[in-house]
Amino acid sequence: MAEAALQRSGDGAARLALEIRGLQAWYNESHILHGVDLDVREGEVVTLLGRNGAGKTTTLKAIMGIVGKRSGSVAFNGRELINLPIERIARLGVALCPEERAIFASLTVKENLFLPPAVAKTGAMSVDRIYALFPNLRERLSSGGGKLSGGEQQMLAIARILRTGARFLMLDEPTEGLAPVIIQQIGRTIAELKREGFTILLVEQNFRFASTLADRFFVMEHGRIVDAFASVELEGRMGFLHETLGV
């Protein structure tokens, strides 16, 4: 069924940015991912849906290489990542904005923003554009990273990966715990990034937020993809989604 959805949706001409086949992942002894299949086309926004503990965050981390052990295949722009160390994967232009945001408290906002090294010669967003997208950050450049509000932390976490030239962004629950007005701002930013041709893999609990942004959806349960569909098919899936996600 998932394969069928992949065939039907989109124009079919766009190149695959990410192609995951049979991805399994473990933390210590616990087996979290049991064979994930997932594709993301270039320029697409794809959203991973699923209950807590379904394996969404682990999928992002497994792509990045941040799990104890992984197997299967993760191809990024045709390049196999499964045996590469974390930093090599990042250098290929894969960027992660983690759920906990991971702003460094011992660094200033400016140091946080400029910390990630450039991974590509082109495609990076200029600092001026970043300040235009997130005006609050500019005012807080000399503050300590630990002193930011949740919304500011989230903006900084997104901003710092835009500067590097990475064109494939993985955003893990970017709206979690934020005020509606900030959520809107983040939504506008993601839409903007999509217009600029960034490829985005989004994990989101906020189903309404995701439904306005995503081209396609994948639904996870127990460490596997159980459904995949395009945004036009969303209406028809509401019943199923209610059942699986409890949304």
Binding site: I66, E87, A90, P98, F104, A105, L115, P117
Partner: peptide, 20 residues
């Protein structure tokens, strides 16, 4: 800054492409 960041969260610094 790399050093301080890696002291706090080495995995994340690696995920930025730094050979920690």
């Amino acid at each position: 800054a790399y050093l301080r960041a890696a002291t706090e969260n080495p995995t994340m610094v690696r995920a930025f492409g730094v050979n920690v």
